[in-house]
Design a protein around this nucleic acid. Structure first.
Length: 604
DNA sequence: ATAGGGTTAG
């Protein structure tokens, strides 16, 4: 930021009183520490440093620069402090990712006798949101209620957001419901939509969006809401509704909004329609880092590495500097296409070439690609070199464990498993990996032991499920449970029998449904309830899709976990037997099955 | 003067 010479050159002959508004104006426009400090000096010289209003402006200016030490020194030296002084400093701490300091300031404020106002409560709620601490947030809520501020639109919206970010969607909704309808403005509707979307309640987000249009009391959808709803559709892979929302985006005149375009690119790619993603991207006039990244990530999901590298080079040529997410997307593309050395090179050169330091996720991606390629010793060395901690470490070592499983390297799996256990974090994923590694090595007893220790310790993993959208309605399938097919259940079974025998003729040796131990990668709670014990959810969803999706239409199956190698083989075989195309969305990529093969070329 | 919501990655 530059200072404004025409303002700093206030006439020396002007009376001091005239200087004050000029200096205050300077402060309000300043966002760099040097000019704030310079103006501070001038204020002191002119004798205005101590009056409350000037100090508050200075305080706000220091907070805007993120110079929290300067802000604190100033605050501590102030003779008088009013609610604005306290609130300004609190808000500075919250914005500087120091929510704990903001909250201790709230307590100190209480004992100093200055009464908080609506802005103070809103700021405190924001700090609690950053801490994701609903307990502390509830105390703020209670204080605001007592002070009569809780119905204030801004306070209520901040509290709503706080509950949502602390995982209490019901509490967030209660705050929303308690707001009088006229108090609900575009921001509160947007915050409630985001609350659902961020807590993976996409259906609720879509329902609320519909409610806005019928009972919104004149509040029009804005770009915040549209981006949120599109992202909710992406999360649930709901192509039908996603296209409707895209229509609304265009009708409302937001077709040129970058943030919405990014959400649309992501939505179409997660719905299995890369071509639509491409169309949305091609309409963007001046793609930014984020828009380039969204299409790179989309192409990476489809294993289109040539496309990814072309886009990446084009972006760099255009002078758009890649960020950490872009580079991760390119690395994923390398990983999913077997371009191990290109990917590793990128990891080693990202700092010098693009000024981006490798994050834990970049190391995880690199470990993943080495692991897939069977270069497990290198993967292990790199994992150690990365020196990551906490949840990041879990992801990293899990990735290695998964590779150990695929390549039946129990020796390394045990060492990697140890690293997972050493992390005091959520270990469910690691334990499942361990159990699967034992299964692959034929050590069924050990696998069972890990599983039962999980049950004893009350550790659960999200059950694996697959779903398919038919005429805008999602049908969700769990392993072994055919009841989801409703009236079609019997026909699903018959079709699976028929397919199994046809696959046999082509050399398939497995079984689609039986109590196989290798099914351990999916939840077995449904065991016994279904007619076909052990049949994987994606196979059920596919069979259902083959029956109900009209011929000629691509069948799109979504899955919340990664597809297992058995199912991958089965899907390839089925696509060769039946002349239909189907797309499976994995946890992290797409598989397009056609005439007996898959777009991933078995790299996954 | 001080305050509230959104996109890409996992």
């Amino acid at each position: 930021m530059t200072t404004r010479p025409q303002l700093s050159m206030a006439s020396p002959s002007s009376p001091a009183a005239a200087l004050k508004p000029v200096l205050i104006h300077l402060l309000r426009g300043a966002s760099d520490l040097a000019s704030v400090a310079a103006t501070h000096a001038k204020l002191v010289k002119a004798g205005f440093a101590s009056p409350l209003a000037s100090s508050n402006h200075l305080l706000a200016a220091y907070c805007r620069c993120g110079a929290m030490c300067c802000a604190r020194d100033l605050f501590d030296g102030m003779r008088d402090r009013d609610v604005v002084s306290w609130t300004t400093l609190m808000s500075g701490y919250a914005a500087a990712a120091r929510p704990r300091d903001a909250m201790s300031l709230l307590r100190a404020m209480g004992s100093s006798g200055v009464r908080p106002n609506a802005v103070t409560f809103s700021t405190a709620a924001c700090a609690c949101a950053r801490l994701a601490d609903a307990g502390l947030g509830r105390q703020v809520h209670a204080q605001a209620e007592v002070a009569g501020c809780a119905r204030d639109a801004v306070v209520a919206t901040s509290l709503l957001d706080m509950y949502a970010k602390a995982g209490g969607v019901e509490d967030a909704r209660a705050v929303f419901d308690a707001m009088a309808a006229p108090a609900r403005n575009a921001v509160s509707w947007g915050a409630m939509l985001a609350a659902y979307a961020q807590n993976t309640l996409g259906d609720e987000a879509i329902r609320l969006f519909a409610e806005l249009r019928t009972h919104g009391g004149g509040v029009a959808p804005n770009h915040f809401m549209l981006a949120t709803v599109v992202s909710a559709c992406a999360g649930m892979a709901r192509l039908g509704i996603g296209r409707c929302v895209h229509g609304a985006v265009l009708r409302l005149g937001y077709g040129n909004n970058d943030v919405i375009s990014v959400a649309l690119v992501d939505m179409y790619s997660k719905c299995g329609c890369y071509e639509y993603s491409r169309k949305v991207f091609d309409r963007i006039e001046q793609p930014s880092v984020v828009t380039y990244t969204s299409i790179i990530v989309a192409a990476a999901k489809y294993g289109r590495w040539r496309c990814v590298l072309t886009l990446f080079n084009e972006m760099v040529d255009q002078g758009v500097r890649p960020n950490d997410v872009t580079l991760l997307g390119v690395m994923h593309a390398c990983s999913h296409s077997g371009l191990v050395d290109t990917g590793l090179q990128l990891l080693r050169s990202m700092q010098s070439k693009y000024g981006v330091a490798p994050c834990p996720s970049h190391y995880t991606s690199a470990v993943d690609m080495l692991g897939r390629a069977g270069r497990l010793e290198e993967a292990f060395e790199l994992a150690k070199e990365a020196q990551v901690e906490g949840n990041d470490a879990l992801l990293l070592w899990n990735s290695l464990l998964s590779a150990c499983r695929t390549h039946k390297r129990l020796d390394l799996a045990t060492m990697a498993g140890q690293r997972v256990f050493n992390n005091q974090q959520d270990v469910a994923g690691g334990l499942v990996m361990m159990s699967n590694a034992y299964v692959s090595a034929g050590q069924i007893d050990n696998a069972a032991a890990v599983r039962s220790s999980m049950r004893l310790r009350g550790i659960r993993k999200d059950p694996g499920c697959s779903w398919i959208e038919v005429k805008d309605t999602p049908y969700v399938f769990y392993a072994g449970a055919i009841s989801c097919a409703g009236a079609w259940a019997d026909e699903v079974l018959m079709l699976l029998d028929e397919l199994e025998s046809k696959m046999r003729e082509r050399g398939y040796r497995g079984r689609l449904g039986s109590a196989r131990v290798s099914d351990a990668h999916e939840d077995e709670e449904e065991e016994g309830k279904g007619v076909m014990v052990g049949v994987h959810s994606e196979i059920l969803a596919l069979a259902f899709g083959l029956l109900v999706v009209p011929k000629g239409m691509t069948i799109r199956v979504m899955k919340n976990l990664r597809m297992c190698s058995d199912c991958h083989e089965v899907f390839k075989l089925i696509s060769g037997i039946i002349e239909r195309e189907f797309v499976v969305r994995d946890l992290n990529r797409f598989h397009h099955f056609k005439m007996g093969s898959c777009s991933c070329n078995d790299y996954w």
